[in-house]
Write a protein that binds this DNA or RNA. Structure first.
Lengths: 262, 262
DNA sequence: TGCTTGAGCTCGCGA
DNA sequence: TCGCGAGGTCAAGCA
C-alpha cells in the first residue's frame, strides 16, 4: 500500500489525488459526492455515498452500493484535474476524454477514505474454449479432432495466410485444420483457400477440417459442398485437455502431484 | 465507515468477512489472490494483487489494475463462504450462484486492507437522450424537429400500432413522427405503415419524419425511396430542452431559482 | 420465466 | 484508425 488517508480534509485529499491520479497506481476513494457526465449521452447523479476507483490505465469507475455495473465511468481518461472550491466546501474531480469527447465531473462534499495501492498482476485471464486454447488443446491432444491424427505444424505459413494446424491423419493424408469459435461463411472460404494452397504444395488429395464448438445447418452445407469436413469439439473436452496444458508448464516430475491437488 | 483493517492475518480477515459479506454493507478487499471461475464458461486467474468488492446487493467484483471491466465477477451471489486453510496459509472465499450455476473461488495469500462501508445512495442515474426522453423533448419543444411544428397527439393509436408523435407542420399538413435512437430498415417500414394508416384516416398527403440522433447512408436511401424524411436531432438539443422538463416538475414559482442554481 | 433488444455498451481483431 | 463481431456480455421490457 502506498497511502491510506482517513477522513482527510479536502485540501489534503486534493494533494493526494493530484499526486496519484496521473501515476501508475490504483486509487480508491470513498466519499459523499454528486456526479455529472456529459458526452455520448448525459447523466446526473445526485449526492450519495459512493466508491470511486481510478485504475492504473487511468480508467475511472463510480460505484454505488448496488449492481455489478458502475453508476458512472470512463474507460480511459486523457486528463484529470482536481480543484477545491473553498466557498462551497467541495472537491471537484474532472476526468476528460477526447474521441469521443466526454467529461465526468465528481463533486465530493466529504471524503471518508483515500487508498492508494499499486496492483501487480502479470497473469491474464485465460478463458478456455477460446480459439487459441482450442489450438493448444489440439496440439496437445489431436485425438479431440480425430483418432490417429498427428500434428505436423502449427501456424503454418501459406500464401493464403497462416494455417491453424497442419496434420496427417492415420492414413498419412495431409490435413488442414481451421479452428473457429464462431464459424461463418468466410471461415469456410478461408479453409478452402488453405486446402488449395496445400494441394499445390504437396500435389495430392488434401483434407480440410473445420473445428468448432458449434455449427449452423447452412454453413455446414456450404462446407460440405466444397468437400470439406466439420468436427464439433465439445467445450468440456477442450477444458479437460487444457488442464493438462496448464500443469505441463510446471515440469513433468510434479505433474501427478499438481493434478491430484485439484 | 464501519471497519478498516490493515494487513490483518487471515483469521482476523475471515472473522470480518464472515460478519460483513452477508450484511447490507460494501466490502473492499485489497490483496494477493488467485481466482477460479466455473459456470457458463471457465476461467483461471493466476496470483496477482487485486481489488475485490462485495456490494450491498451481494454483487461481487474482482478488479485487476486495468480496464473498465472487472477481471472476474458475479452479478448477484446466492451464498458466500469463507474458509482459512492454515496449512497452505490461504483464505478461500467462495461465491456461489444458481441459475445459472456458477462458482467464483478467490484464494487470498495476503490481505493488505479490508474496508467496510455502508453506502447510502437514493439518487438514480438519469440518462438523457434515450428514446422516451427524445419524445418528451419533442413534445416540449417541437422546434427541435422542424420550425412551426405543432404536436397534435402523442402515442396516437393506429391500426399499425402506436405513433410516437402526431403533429401538423406550419402549413397545417399532418405529420407522423417516428423517433428511434438506432434506426434500422424495420423502423422505415414501420413509419411507412403509419403514414399509410393516417392517409386513410385523413385522406390527404401525409408527411412522415424519422427523428434520430444518427443515420446510415443505406437506411437514408431506403427512407427517401418511400417519400419519407429524416431529421437528425443533436443530442445537445435534446438535453438542453430536457433541462426545462426536469425543472418544470418542481413547479413554476421556483423555476428560475432552480435553474440559476445549476 | 424466458426471449428479444439496446448499451455512454467494452474489447479485441483485422483491414 | 476504423469497422465488425463477440461477450461468462448485462439489463430492461414484454409476452
Amino acid at each position: 500500500m502506498k497511502e491510506l488517508l482517513e477522513k482527510p480534509d479536502l485540501k489534503r485529499a486534493k494533494e493526494a489525488l493530484e499526486e496519484y491520479l496521473i501515476r501508475d497506481v490504483t486509487v480508491q476513494v470513498n466519499g459523499l459526492c454528486s456526479v455529472n457526465y456529459k458526452g455520448r449521452a448525459s447523466s446526473k447523479l445526485d449526492r450519495g455515498e459512493r466508491l470511486v476507483i481510478k485504475k492504473q490505465d487511468s480508467a475511472l469507475l463510480v460505484h454505488g452500493p448496488e449492481n455489478y455495473q458502475p453508476k458512472n465511468w470512463q474507460p480511459e481518461v486523457d486528463s484529470y484535474s482536481v480543484e477545491v472550491d473553498e466557498e462551497n466546501e467541495e472537491l471537484l474531480l474532472e476526468a476528460r476524454r477526447k474521441n469521443p469527447d466526454e467529461l465526468v465531473e465528481i463533486r465530493f462534499e466529504e471524503i471518508e477514505t483515500v487508498i492508494v495501492t499499486q496492483l501487480v498482476d502479470k497473469s491474464d485471464l485465460k478463458i478456455r474454449g477460446h480459439e487459441v486454447d482450442i489450438h493448444e488443446s489440439i496440439e496437445e491432444e489431436p485425438g479431440i479432432v480425430e483418432e490417429g491424427l498427428k500434428v505436423v505444424e502449427r501456424e503454418k505459413e501459406s500464401p493464403a495466410g497462416f494455417i491453424d494446424v497442419f496434420a496427417r491423419d492415420k492414413d498419412e493424408n495431409y490435413t488442414v485444420i481451421e479452428v473457429k469459435r464462431n464459424p461463418d461463411y468466410n471461415t469456410v472460404l478461408q479453409l478452402q483457400r488453405y486446402v488449395e494452397e496445400i494441394e499445390e504444395e504437396f500435389s495430392g488429395e488434401i483434407r480440410g477440417i473445420l473445428v468448432a464448438p458449434k455449427m449452423t445447418e447452412k454453413i455446414l452445407d456450404y462446407l460440405e459442398e466444397r468437400g470439406l469436413e466439420f468436427v464439433e469439439v465439445d467445450m468440456e473436452d477442450v477444458i479437460a485437455s487444457y488442464e493438462g496444458v496448464d500443469n505441463s508448464q510446471r515440469g513433468l516430475s510434479d505433474f501427478g502431484a499438481q493434478y491430484s491437488e485439484d
